[in-house]
Amino acid sequence: MNIFRFAGDMTHLISILVLLLKIYATKSCSGISLKTQELYALVFLTRYLDLFTDFISVYNTIMKLVFIASSLAVVCCMRMHRVVRRSYDKDLDTFRHYFLILASFVLALLVNEKFTFQEIFWAFSIYLEALAILPQLVLLQRSGNVDNLTGQYVFFLGAYRAFYILNWIYRYFTEQHFSRWIACVSGLVQTVLYADFFYYYFISWKNNAKMQLPA
């Protein structure tokens, strides 16, 4: 464990807590893509298949349970809660996310560390995580403005990826056998996807204006 990875896990956890805070505090999920949340829940469920078979550390197990529980909580809240679900931008959140699932699965069948059930689903979850933010970014683009908590949510998600890239660089130089090239390449793609959002987030923060994404 290094400070970059720990910081990455904490900002990842904060991003989910910010999301839960926004939904419970405002009793609204406007500006949040349900599809992105469903994709994230799928990412955690398919990545942590080894939750009960491989014990790595108490921290690792607890964080896996927290990520699975919180991502499912967001999806259930957005789908079930009678007040929250009314504020869901159903007609804006129209990204065909099934294509993302299919593309990630096909890629996982072709590119994986070992052609076993667990490894294929692990690679699938890595590829899907890189693409999962797309429906959310498209929704923000369409809704034009980004309210503070949603902007912070995407910001913390981006920070989590950036810390993980620092973690991989650190591990590359400190561990001789370290070779997580699938996660590294996919993580880089994911961070690039955030880059344009960060650009507009920074511009709006600098101008102290409400964040406007170009239509």
Binding site: D9, D50, E113, N167, A183
Partner: peptide
């Protein structure tokens, strides 16, 4: 084995 070693991240 190698792939297991690399699964210590979340």
């Amino acid at each position: 084995d190698d792939s297991k070693v690399n699964k210590d991240e979340l």
